[in-house]
Design a protein around this nucleic acid. Structure first.
Length: 436
DNA sequence: CTAAAGGTTGAACAG
DNA sequence: GCTGTTCAACCTTTA
């Protein structure tokens, strides 16, 4: 949009902090020099305290920013902090008090495979390996990678970024170098660079909302009357829902500490708006415990996304716990690996073992209800009910936000047989205050 | 003000 | 196996 100099000065006086923003400073300086009109991206008209809530909007902000500089390795640390190398030389140093395995709750034999050992050396090795195939890097599109390959189909750099073993700036720089050599490369949001920017997107959003990790008091988050079902939550968290694809993912997560992003979509949708109608906060807590790459802003942001509580709103798009996995693993090898009791089921029914007759179940060495659970809900039925509940919840949120009464709300659709849940929903309605 | 377009990655189906 | 359509329709932003 084009603005006049006087408008720009008006914004400035209203508290637009141009000094925080190199791009705006530049425009402002030009405005000082001449009375012409200048092109300003609409994002800057927003209140400075607000973050972009769509990725595309976020990208438009990113484009105006200067490139981050990768810092050199420091020769020494400031303020007399002891360099790590020296500290390690001190025998039995208490500088870094790491608990030993004996002191931890876990016993060595309880631990899963350590597929992603920590440390900067490993992080840099992993980065080099991931970026070695430049064609792969340049053509990377996240939706086309497999959530249920036996080995990760993506880079698994997230744990290293999360723990600070790997600099996000370094990844950014290395990617840019490669993309320069491949003019026809994939682009955000699906590209590898796009993945790095998703991290920044959620950081930006979370930075202005202290309640980013909960529903109540969170300006981004729609108020939805989730149900408390400890038994279903427990079944989900431990891979005992009776849906092999969902259970395989949750067991991989528990064993290895990492699952593919689309696998997270599948189980998150299943827990919340898709099937179990349990709060995303519960899922967030489980991921927080089990994910190596768990990150406050990303975990909360993605859970809100998948539960259609914020950022994403097309709640009628529900992942099928049966069909979704089949797309990239028709034979069910992934399910066989992580749900070994189903290993002898043929490809035809490994994603839906309830379709096997009792005789067949016996023959495959896994009888439902004994060796593997019956499915805890019927997806075909509940997902349709849940879409209706989402529709009703959205309607109420809209009314609270706009103050306008629309059509009659079908409370029968909203309410389940659980009276406690309805009471909870009433309090949520009264406290719902959506700022954005 | 309203209408229309755009939005990280759906499912089921037809051809 | 791939491509396009339909399904029923959300919110946010823009023209």
């Amino acid at each position: 949009m084009a603005v006049e100099r006087r408008t720009l000065i008006h914004w400035f006086r209203k508290g637009l902090r141009v000094h925080d923003n190199p791009a705006l400073t530049q425009i402002f300086n030009k405005a000082e020099a001449s009375p012409d009109k200048f092109t300003v991206r609409p994002i800057f008209v927003l209140d400075p305290g607000k973050a972009p809530i769509t990725y595309q909007k976020f990208l438009s902000v990113v484009e105006t920013l200067k490139l981050p500089k990768v810092l050199d390795k420091p020769q020494r640390l400031p303020n007399g902090v002891q360099p790590i190398a020296d500290a390690l030389e001190l025998e039995q140093s208490d500088v870094y008090e790491c608990p030993t395995l004996d002191q931890l709750v876990k016993r060595p034999q309880e631990l899963g495979i350590n597929k992603f050992p920590g440390g900067e050396t490993e992080a840099l090795r992993r980065l080099d390996t991931s970026l070695s195939d430049e064609h792969w890097v340049a053509s990377f599109e996240k939706p086309n990678t497999s959530p249920n390959s036996l080995e990760p189909s993506t880079t698994v750099l997230s744990p290293y970024l999360k723990f600070g073993c790997l600099s996000a700036r370094l990844v950014h720089q290395r990617l840019q170098e490669i993309l320069k050599r491949h003019p026809k490369h994939s682009k955000p949001p699906v590209s590898l660079m796009g993945q790095l920017l998703w991290r920044e997107f959620y950081y930006t959003a979370a930075a202005v909302e202290p309640n980013f990790d909960r529903m109540l008091g969170n300006a981004y988050c729609l108020q939805i009357p989730w149900q408390e079902r400890p038994d279903h939550l427990d079944a989900w968290a431990h891979g005992r829902t009776g849906y092999p694809f969902i259970d395989a993912i949750m067991r991989q997560l528990r064993q290895e500490g990492w699952i593919h992003h689309l696998a997270r979509h599948a189980v998150a949708c299943f827990l919340t708006r898709g099937d179990l109608w349990i709060s995303w906060e519960e899922g967030q807590r489980v991921f927080e415990q089990l994910l190596l790459d768990q990150d406050w802003a990303l975990n909360a942001g993605n859970w809100m996304w998948l539960s259609a509580s914020a950022f994403f709103h097309q709640y009628f798009r529900v992942y099928s716990p049966v069909a979704f996995g089949k797309k990239t693993d028709r034979t069910g090898a992934y399910v066989r690996k992580y749900v070994p009791e189903l290993a002898k089921y043929p490809a035809g029914c490994i994603y839906e073992p309830w379709k096997a007759t009792l005789a067949d179940q016996r023959e495959f060495g896994c009888v439902l209800g004994i060796d593997y659970p019956h499915r805890i809900v019927n997806h075909d039925i509940v997902h349709k009910e849940n879409i209706k509940r989402m529709s009703a919840a959205y309607k109420i949120n809209r009314q609270v936000r706009t103050g306008k009464q629309e059509d009659e709300i079908d409370y029968d659709t909203m309410s389940l047989t659980n009276g406690k849940r309805n009471a909870r929903f009433e309090t949520e309605r009264s406290t719902a205050k959506r700022k954005c």
